[in-house]
Every structure is written in C-alpha cells, then in structure tokens.
Amino acid sequence: MSESRTIKAALASSDELAAPGKSLWHRIEPAALGIGSIVALLVVWELVPRLITLSAGTKLFFTTPSQVAGTLWRLFATGEIWTPLGVSASGFGLGLLLSIVVGLPLGVLIGRSRTLNDMIDPFITAFNATPRLVFLPLVMLWLGLGLWSKVLIVFIGALFPILINTYEGVRNADKVLINVVRSFGAKEWDIARLVVVPNAMPYIIAGLRLAIGRAVLGVVVAEFFGSESGLGVMMVQAAGRYQVDVVFSGLIIFAVLSLALTAMVQILEQRLSRWRPVHVSE
C-alpha cells in the first residue's frame, strides 16, 4: 500500500520538476541518482580495505564486492551451487504452492460466510500477529530436519498473506454483480467463479507478492536452524568458517530470486488486468 503510494508521489513530483524547457537531465535524474547511489556504495565498499588498514580481526569479517562477484562466479562455474539451490528451491516451491492451494479456497469460503468469518477471525488475528517463526522448534520436533519441516515453515509463513488478501478481496465483491448472476440462476459455485474470484484477483496477487517475501524468509530461517542442506545451510557453515564472501553470495542469490519472482507476479498481474482502467493499489 505504502509502496504504490510512494510511487505515485514520486511520479507526481517528477512531473512537477519536468517543467517545459527543462530537458533531458530532469527526465533521467531519478534513475541517474538511484543508480549513482548504488554504484557509489559499491565503490566505497570496494575501496575501504585499500585505503584503510583493517585490523586482523575485522579483516576476517570483511569482503569486497569484487570478491563476492568472484565467489558467485565460482559457485556457478563449478556447479557446486546447484545442489543447495535445488534443495532450497524445492522447499520454497512446495511450501508456497501448498499455501496457495489451501489459502485461496479457504479465503473464498471465509469471505463468503459471515458465521465462518466471525468464528475464524480470532485465530487469524492471533496467528497473523505472531511471528510464525515461533513454531519452528515445534515443527522441527515433529518433522525432523528434512524437506518437510522446511515446507511446513514456508507454508505457515506464506499462508496468511494469501488467505487474508483473498478474504478481503472476496468480501469486497460487488453486491450488484452477485445479484446479476444470481438473477440468471447462478448457484454459489457460479457466483464464486464468475464474480467473486475475478474480483478478488488483484488482492490475491498482492497477497502472492507478500507471500513470496515471507516464503523466502521461511526458507532461510528453516535452513539456518534445522536442515541438512540448502542455501541457508551453506551460508551458516560459511559464516562459521569466516567465508564472508560465500555468505554474501547466498544473500544475493536469495535477493535475486525474490526480486525475480516478484517481477513475474507483476507481469502476471498486468496480463490478468487488461480489463481494468487503472491498477488497483491494494
């Protein structure tokens, strides 16, 4: 919500700045400053060990962007990244998929029934306020160190954004449209299919975006504390061996994955929302 508002505000102020006659620089200024600050950060970071003599202890914990890039390259070139990446990805994928399979129908159901909604509301409020991480030791106790404890942690992390957004979208369904399809003899199933779900789609996709972030967090944390392999395990072990460049490589892979998935969801959203005059900002 705040994000889209920020974007709109940014657009508004850039329009103000781009007064007629003021040229190229004003159009590229935001991008130039944005990229510039990232580049500047990387350069300063790279130069620190060359300009300042770091103590031996600090050096142990220090890496530079060029080292990280080299390590990333090595991890992919030798192929040693693929096994942990695959393990993490399967836990992530299965958990997220499960959360969609469960969260979507459940959200529709709760959104359509006032009684069910009133009954489940305390549980949703409680679980949504609580960091789901608190269940990690319990999940590990139940499911052990394998794939499935990871799947379950990802699942309970990603479930609530999907469930809550679906339910909000469903509750927002236009009463008139529901009456329209009912007047043509629609049953509850038709109402869900024809009105409720399409109407909730923007909300569901916003929920999916949130869920991706939560799922990545779930994978990372689950692997830190209870896993035999995966990217997170690789990172913990590297941290123990002071291979800071490997830790950052893992971080970057996670970041790129989560950004790429979010971008994919955004593309999906654009394809699904041709019918909308303006994009709904959730």
């Binding site: 329209v180 399809v181 009912r182 007047s183 043509f184 909308r276």
Partner: peptide, 27 residues
C-alpha cells in the same frame, strides 16, 4: 426463485468489468 422467463436490467448496469461486451451479453 430466479428463472429464465424473467430478466432484469439493473440501475448500476451490473456488467462484469473483466468481461468484454460480447461475453457480458452471453452471461
């Protein structure tokens, strides 16, 4: 209950925004 011998034209139009004109008429 609702039946095909009656049909309503609604004040707020009640068109499904995600359907084209043709698909709305087909509903």
């Amino acid at each position: 209950g609702p039946g095909t011998d009656r049909a309503m034209v609604f004040q707020e139009f009640g068109l499904l925004p995600w359907r084209t004109v043709l698909n709305n008429i087909e509903l």
